[in-house]
C-alpha cells in the first residue's frame, strides 16, 4: 500500500537539489588568502613610498627591506656577528622562559592550592603584576650587571605572571563533582592534586605558557635596549640610531621568528600532554 503510494508520487516529486551560498572570499584556500593579503600590504607600502608620503630616510621601500632581510639572513647563515648576537638573545629567552615556568608554576601552586597562598601571597602578586614590569630593568642592571643575567631576569620577570595565573586558574578548573568523587574514593590531597587538579588544569597552564613564550622575548629585548650587552636588541638599537630602517625591519623579522619558535615548542608539548583537549585556533596554525 505504502509502496504504491510512493511509486505513484515519484514522477510528480520536484527536484529540490540546490546549492548553499558560500561567499567567494571563503572559498579561497588559506595559503592563497595569506599570500593575497601580503601582496596587498606590499602594494600599499610601495604606493606610500613612491608617492613620498613619508620621508625615504625613515621609510624604506619594500625592495630595500627585502635586500636587507637577505643580507641579515646571509650573515646569520655564515655564522657571522649577527648569529652570535642572536645566540645570546636565544640564551636569554630560553633561560628566562625556564625560570618563568619553574618559578611561575611553583607560585601558581602556592596561590591555587593553599588557602594561605590565596589569602596572603595573591594580593601582592596582583599588585606587582599591575606595575609596569619593564620599569624594573635599570634595577636588574644595577643588581646583575650589563651581562646576560640582567636580561634573563627581566625576561623571566615579564613572563612569569601568565604562568602563575594559568597554573592557579588550572588548579581551580576541576568541577565540583570530580572533587566530590575523589573525596568519596578516599583520595589524599596529594592524589587529588596529581590525578585530578593538575591534569584538568593543563589547558589553563598551557594558555599561560603561550603568553609567556611571547612575553619572554619582549622582556629579553627590552632588557637589551636598556641594559646594553651584545644581543640582537643591541643590533636593533644601533641600526635605529643610524637610521638604518631596512636593517631594523629585517632584524625585527628574525626576532619574531625566535618568539614563534618558543611558541611552537609550547604547542608541541601541549599536543603531547593534553591530547584529550580540544584544539584552539592558535594550535591549528601549526598543523
Amino acid at each position: 500500500m505504502t509502496n504504491e503510494l510512493t511509486a505513484a508520487a515519484k514522477p510528480v516529486a520536484p527536484q529540490t537539489v540546490w546549492t548553499e551560498e558560500v561567499h567567494w572570499l571563503d572559498r579561497i584556500p588559506r595559503s592563497v588568502a595569506m599570500l593575497l593579503l601580503l601582496c596587498i600590504f606590499i602594494a600599499v607600502w610601495q604606493a606610500v613610498y613612491s608617492l613620498r608620503l613619508i620621508s625615504h630616510i625613515i621609510m624604506p621601500s619594500p625592495m630595500e627591506t627585502v635586500v636587507d632581510i637577505i643580507t641579515v639572513a646571509t650573515n646569520l647563515l655564515t655564522g657571522d656577528y649577527m648569529l652570535r648576537a642572536l645566540w645570546i638573545t636565544t640564551q636569554e629567552v630560553l633561560a628566562g622562559f625556564v625560570i618563568a615556568v619553574v618559578l611561575g608554576f611553583s607560585l601558581g601552586l602556592l596561590v591555587g592550592e593553599t588557602a594561605f597562598g590565596e589569602r596572603a601571597v595573591l594580593p601582592y602578586l596582583v599588585g606587582i603584576n599591575a606595575a609596569p614590569k619593564v620599569a624594573f630593568a635599570p634595577l636588574f642592571v644595577s643588581w646583575l650587571g650589563f651581562g646576560i643575567a640582567s636580561k634573563v631576569a627581566l625576561a623571566a620577570f615579564v613572563a612569569i605572571f601568565p604562568v602563575i595565573v594559568g597554573t592557579a586558574a588550572g588548579i581551580h578548573a576541576a568541577d565540583q563533582n570530580s572533587r566530590m568523587l575523589f573525596r568519596t574514593m578516599g583520595a589524599t590531597r596529594w592524589q587529588a592534586l596529581i590525578k585530578l587538579k593538575l591534569p584538568y588544569g593543563m589547558p589553563h597552564f598551557f594558555g599561560g605558557l603561550k603568553n609567556a613564550a611571547v612575553l619572554v622575548v619582549v622582556g629579553a629585548v627590552v632588557g637589551e635596549f636598556l641594559g646594553g650587552g651584545k644581543g640582537f636588541g643591541e643590533l636593533i638599537r644601533m641600526a635605529a640610531s643610524m637610521i638604518n630602517t631596512p636593517r631594523v625591519f629585517a632584524l625585527i623579522l628574525f626576532l619574531s621568528l625566535l618568539g614563534l619558535g618558543t611558541f611552537w615548542i609550547v604547542i608541541q608539548l601541549q599536543r603531547k600532554l593534553i591530547f584529550w583537549h580540544k584544539e584552539t585556533v592558535a594550535d591549528e596554525m601549526f598543523e
Binding site: D175, N177, S178, T184, L196, I274, W276
Partner: peptide, 11 residues
C-alpha cells in the same frame, strides 16, 4: 556513588 554527570576523566 554516581552523579548526574558521568564525571569521567578525559585523559
Amino acid at each position: 556513588m554516581m552523579f548526574q554527570q558521568p564525571t569521567l576523566f578525559p585523559w
